[in-house]
Design a binder for these strands. Sequence first.
DNA 1: CTCATTCTGGACCAATCGGTCTAGTCCTGT
DNA 2: ACAGGACTAGACCGATTGGTCCAGAATGAG
Lengths: 187, 187
Amino acid sequence: MTERPLPTKDRLIRTAAELFRRSGYNGVGLSELLSAADAPKGSLYHHFPNGKSDLAVAAATWASDGMLRLIAASFEPADSFQDGVETLCHKVAKLFDKSGQWDGCPISSTLFEGPDNATFRDHAHHLYEGWITEVAHHAGRFGISNPQETADTLFILLQGGWQLARARQSSDVLRALPQKMRLTKIH
Amino acid sequence: MTERPLPTKDRLIRTAAELFRRSGYNGVGLSELLSAADAPKGSLYHHFPNGKSDLAVAAATWASDGMLRLIAASFEPADSFQDGVETLCHKVAKLFDKSGQWDGCPISSTLFEGPDNATFRDHAHHLYEGWITEVAHHAGRFGISNPQETADTLFILLQGGWQLARARQSSDVLRALPQKMRLTKIH
DNA sequence: CTCATTCTGGACCAATCGGTCTAGTCCTGT
DNA sequence: ACAGGACTAGACCGATTGGTCCAGAATGAG
């Protein structure tokens, strides 16, 4: 086992991402968070001077980076755009199953709540557009005619599909997405 | 003006639905809720013995009924299923704009948080399937070959579209949904 | 070894949380 | 007129919230 102690800051970010995804920004108290991360309060406010909100932004960014890596890992070795879509949806479905079939989208759970802070909204928008840009890049690479719109569609299907999967407690919906996507516009 | 005083119970449900949609179940305190509804605490616990959670279920149900009426109002006078989809997406876009382009889905904001109560999850599932069943009914009525799957797709597009619209602070995404739907499966 | 900096540990705080409880008001049926 | 249930009003409660603060441990540079 790689029993790496992992620095406190990273431990905070990871557990924050996990807990916020499960219960939402307002559903997680600092005490619960700190005990889960096994860190004292002083460390939190040392690494994140603005406390909970700073940590939430960091956690959402970290989670978003993971998604970007998932997208890249799906499309880079793919033979076609449709092939990448298939792989991505499959990976997301696995992620869903591993998350206990209940957690929400890490970004919306973390940033779409809490203070109706403009910073939160803008950051969420920024992260989402990052996903879409990454998908659009690959769409263009595979010669899809309207990469931006195609990326939008995939994003919408994944978000909506995740929501329905959550309600049904089943990843079947997510696995069926590529078919819907195929019928959409990949000529 | 129809200055109907509206009974306390209904006032509680309506304001609860509104506030939960905006800030999520855990983002709204009883004090804020009660002052917004101009009701004392005693009334809440008279009408909803289990307090906040009972109220949340009632609020989500009320909001869901509104959505069911929106679906019916879109498909009943329609000339075709695709026509109904167009109308529905248009209506939802208007709703989005009227909500200040920030509120979430009333059901997920209210029930997908809070206690990881099984009751909440089941009720959310029940309400969502109600929407889908209603759409599927109209899809069948218009001779769509696979009404259930078509209804699923529309639900997914609306949920995902709403999410993206929220991030972009624009209802354009929602208005563009019918086109994606058309390309999807209506023969 | 020494000193400065970074980081940890946790006591402490006011504010707010959801919830309980009871005294009183209002409304309705008789 | 009066009885009785439906409803309101809000004081009050213990628990928990996010946040502050500082003493001290650990660390790295000279």
